[in-house]
Design a protein around this nucleic acid. Structure first.
Lengths: 122, 122
DNA sequence: TGTATCATCAACCACATGGTTGAACGAGCC
DNA sequence: GGCTCGTTCAACCATGTGGTTGATGATACA
């Protein structure tokens, strides 16, 4: 096994595949948090929480600003948006309502082929 | 380490965190496919592809109908929609345009608190 | 009946992941 | 200087993941 390229979209989806990290994202959506603040609600060591933050950071979901000895994290929603755009291609399968939304989106992000995103094959 | 509850949303995001499986989802969006057909584009054994299909199935993204000796798979988009709804709570972070879409959605799925989804804490 | 076909299962391998503890590092503060 | 605080690092452990090969089980077909 080799070739573990880890494309950005996979990193994002995998990062969101853990409830601890989703909760961190949720709390970051209310504003900046230090690593310690992010760790606080969880019954786990600070080191473990720190690793979760690193996963979010490597996925591009979180940016960090070191300020003295505290690391302040904030949400970077661009990757979240990419994940949502990937999912948006399948909206037509769960209702017309969302479909309308998709075409709204298509206006400012004109999608050449209206086909689902062709994720580069491995 | 125990307690690996594997909540549905985590299963969905983790299932989507692999390009092979995303490509399978993309191909399923064009219609039903047998496991063999799903495996065909990939340079991997049928057994490996079959495991990918099982991951999608356990995540609730795929449903399977056994018909003689072939297993016909089709996309079940409901879980995709759940993932998209989770992401939709963060739309306001990447632009007003999508925000409008979110409020459209809010009409038929009135969100009691307009706060981000509070994923049950571990 | 035999034989090919579609798919899974079982065992295995290498590496990733989520957690721990203890040590280390860098900043602030007395 | 020396202490504390916020955070990471390193080593370790158990389990999950993505792949392989070979055997097995049904089903279709000659």
């Amino acid at each position: 096994m080799v070739e573990r390229a880890a494309d950005p979209l996979s990193l994002v989806f995998r990062a969101l595949g853990d409830p601890t990290r989703r909760e961190m994202v949720r709390r970051l959506s209310a504003g900046e948090r230090s690593v310690g603040e992010l760790a606080e609600p969880f019954r786990m060591s600070l080191a473990a929480a720190s690793k979760h933050v690193q996963v979010l950071e490597r996925a591009g979901l979180v940016r960090r600003r070191v300020e003295g000895r505290v690391h302040r994290c904030r949400l970077d929603a661009e990757r979240l948006a990419e994940a949502q755009r990937w999912l948006a291609h399948y909206e037509r399968f769960w209702g017309e309502r969302l479909d309308a939304l998709a075409s709204l989106l298509a206006e400012d992000a004109p999608d050449p082929a209206d086909a689902p995103p062709t994720d580069p094959r491995p």
